[in-house]
Every structure is written in structure tokens, then in C-alpha cells.
Nucleic acid binder design. Structure first.
Lengths: 228, 228
DNA sequence: TAATTTAATTAGGTACACCTAAAATGGAGT
DNA sequence: ACTCCATTTTAGGTGTACCTAATTAAATTA
């Protein structure tokens, strides 16, 4: 009986690897089935199934021990970063070349990232002048998977008055992104946080606009760094 | 027991509809299972299966009678033309905006055509200035499915000496396309056919180049019209 | 018309990626 | 150490899109 090897170049596998990557954090901790189940919108049993399949495959993308969670292998991380690169290059491309509104780039990129060729990837990268960041301010991994890591923190972590620069905005929620856009909050913008309460932050953006009251639920989507 | 309705928005269904459309010709004759089987690279039994599924579905894309072949319904034709529009717009986009070599646009477009959104379609159409033809000289269907139909004939149909213009080149075979490109044969180019034998055509392209001996197998990929 | 060939369909089966329901495991608190 | 319980896994099943082998229907030839 031959060991039947499965096809691992599927959209579905891509999505599992991406999810493990992003849930693993920078220290690449083991990720639980439940976390993956929630992130992917899939039943826990389905996750177990897929993880077993991935781990059993000769091209091992993951290290998996029953009931102890998963983490990416080197190959798995490489693949995850490749897709992340596709995703962010596509976002930049849709935004800059095809004039998409920022809140629409994510969903389109999410679909297309699985299907573009290396040539497509190379060409949009060239067309954009080898960008380092996507329109949300997230770093685009290089071809070899290298990524500059910047020190930043959530805007909601700010407890005191001070001056900051928006590093990035989350791309997960289009409605939130639209709100941020309406308030003029996008990567690179200067923020002057005036005060912070349990349910909102009061701040000024850019040059001399009137103070803005930002609910914490909205501020959560913003990451900032200090102006140096 | 409820009538379970199937999902017809799949890549696979798209490909069946495209194949039926292109095999049906302009008169939209019934297409046989075998023809579809060959075109799609799928077993005849699989074709029968899919056709039964399509015909049984409430959103009827096809008219199908057992052993009598299929043809597209109005809805099916609409869908087929929508995908053809995606395909050809993508080809034009890859060629003009992303500087793809002509022989590579087909395969990439073939993959992406199933996944781009209406917004993407609209934006590349705008970017290209609402083009009417793709880089191979094929007409791009309008949003409503309308397509100008031009009178043309295969270059291989030419038996006598005469002057012609290249209308289109086939996009099916990348190697053939490369050969044509090397000989300077592309849509819009003038051809002076000098003579035609059972296995080749002798002709001049453009301005005063030396006579070209074109095997019929290559000439088959070229459609021409008379210079008026 | 009967026999043969070709085309199309039915029958039964596979891989993939999901699902629900039931069982097993292992950590927390008593 | 034992019970409880959330988490995870196993068992069994679904829909999609394929497949091969066997059968049936239609077209062609003798």
C-alpha cells in the first residue's frame, strides 16, 4: 500500500498557515485548535483533521503534537510569509494603481493572494517601486521572508498626554477603516493625545483641527510610535 | 425533503460554460459530451454528471437533453460572456500595464478570471481606457455582453496571392505565439501572401522584409481580413 | 435488417474540506 | 486523589468534482 501524498497547494492550506503565523505571535508560540477554529470560522474537529493531514505530509509545514497545539516549521513559515507578501503587495497595488478605497483592498487581496503567479508578484512589486509597506502601514515581507520589525504599540495603551505618529491601522474591519479615514487617521499622520478615559481617547490630528473623541473600540485598530 | 440547490458559482461551472460557449460557435449549436470532455480534459462521464447537475438546477444555465448535447440558456450565455470579458480585460491589463510578454498573458488570465470582483473589472477597464480588443486581437465583450462581430478568416484559407491585415492570433498555444511574435506577426500587421502550398504559406510582413515560409500548423493560429 | 462501432450514460468509488455528535484527555479545584 | 469541565480528538457523514468500468443507445456498415 503506497503512502498517498496529499496536495498541499490549496487555498485552504494557505489559510491555515496564515492563521497559525498570525496567531503564533513574534515568539511563535504553539497555537491551539480552538484559536484556529475561531480565526478560520471552522469547526474544531475540522482543524484537528487538517493539522493531522499537514503534519503527516512529507512536506511538513507544521510541527504538531496531539493536544499540544501547532507551530510552523521553517517551510511553513516561508510559505506563510510568501502569502503575506502577496497579500500586502496586492493591497498596495489595488490602492495605488487601481485607486481602490482603502477599506476595500483587504477583501480583494484576500481572494487573489492565492492565485497570482510569481511573475505577477514581481511585476506589481516593480510597478510600485519595491514598496516596504502596504496602505495600512504593515510591513511587506521581502522575497526571502525578511521583514523589518518596528517598535510600536496600540493607541489604546496610551494613558498620558503626548505626541505620536500613526504606524499602522488594522485591515480587518472595513467599517472601522472608513471611520478612521473620515477622521483623517492613516499611517504617518501625527497624533496629539490630549487625554485618555476608560471609554475614549481625546486627541488632535495633523494641524490644528478640533479635538477628536475616539471610542476605544475604534482606537484599538490604530498602532502608534513616539515622535522622536 | 427539500430540493437541495447546488452552488453554481464555481470555477468548474465557469469552465464548463466557457467551453460550451466557445464550442457552440456563433450559431450556438448543441455541443456534444465528447467535445466538452476533450476541451476540458475531463472524462466523458464527468461531463454527463456536470451537465445533469447544471440542467437540474433552478438557475438553469444550460438546455440539456440526454444524448442530444447541450447549449447555453440566456443566463448561461450571459455568464460565459462575463467570464470572457474578465479574461480578455485581464489579458489586456497584464500586457499593457504589467508588461507581460504576450505568450504569458493567457495562462495568468485563465486563473484570475474566476476571482476578480466587479470593482476590479471596472478599474482595469477604466485604466485601459475601455479597450475593445485584447492583445491577441479578440473582441472584449461589453458589460451587457454585446460584442462587435468582424468578418475574418483563417490565414490557412487563403489559396491565392493577395494583401491582408492580421485580425487576431490564437492564444491557446504559447510556443506558437512566440514564433509568431518572432516573425513580427501580430494584430494589425499587413501581410502579403505570395503563395500557398499544401504544407506552408509564403508571405511578406510589413515593409520589405524577406519572404517568410510559414508552416500551415503555424498559420492556423492567425486570422486575417482583406485590406479594403 | 442485423451486426458492429462509437457515443453517452449509469454505477460505484476517491480525495478534499467541511460538518455534527460522541468519546477521550488532561488540568483545576476541592 | 477525585471529580468536573473545557478542550481536543475520533467516528461517521455531506457536497463537489473528479475517476474507471460496465452498460445502454444511437449511428454506421455490411
Amino acid at each position: 500500500m503506497t503512502t498517498r501524498r496529499v496536495n498541499l497547494n490549496t487555498e485552504s492550506v494557505d489559510n491555515y498557515l496564515k492563521a497559525i503565523y498570525s496567531l503564533g505571535g513574534t515568539e511563535e508560540e504553539r497555537v491551539t485548535s480552538t484559536a484556529l477554529s475561531e480565526r478560520l470560522g471552522v469547526a474544531p474537529a475540522s482543524v484537528t483533521n487538517m493539522l493531522q493531514k499537514l503534519a503527516a505530509s512529507p512536506t511538513s509545514f507544521v510541527e504538531y503534537e496531539a493536544r499540544r497545539g501547532v507551530r510552523l516549521s521553517a517551510a511553513g513559515r516561508r510559505r506563510a510569509l510568501e502569502i503575506l507578501r502577496h497579500h500586502r503587495l496586492l493591497e498596495a497595488f489595488l490602492y495605488k494603481v487601481l485607486d481602490y478605497p482603502i477599506e476595500e483592498v483587504h477583501d480583494e487581496a484576500e481572494r487573489l493572494e492565492h492565485f497570482i503567479s510569481e511573475r505577477f508578484e514581481e511585476r506589481i512589486d516593480a510597478k510600485l517601486g519595491r514598496p516596504k509597506f502596504d496602505p495600512h502601514g504593515h510591513c511587506i515581507p521581502a522575497l526571502d521572508g525578511k521583514m523589518v520589525k518596528r517598535a510600536s504599540q496600540p493607541l489604546t495603551a496610551i494613558e498620558i498626554e503626548g505626541h505620536f505618529v500613526v504606524e499602522s491601522v488594522s485591515d480587518r474591519d472595513a467599517t472601522l477603516l472608513k471611520k478612521l479615514k473620515a477622521h483623517g487617521i492613516s499611517p504617518g499622520v501625527h497624533l496629539h493625545v490630549i487625554r485618555s478615559t476608560h471609554d475614549e481617547l481625546v486627541l488632535r490630528t495633523g494641524r490644528g483641527s478640533k479635538p477628536l473623541h475616539l471610542p476605544r473600540s475604534v482606537a484599538e485598530a490604530v498602532r502608534i510610535r513616539f515622535t522622536h
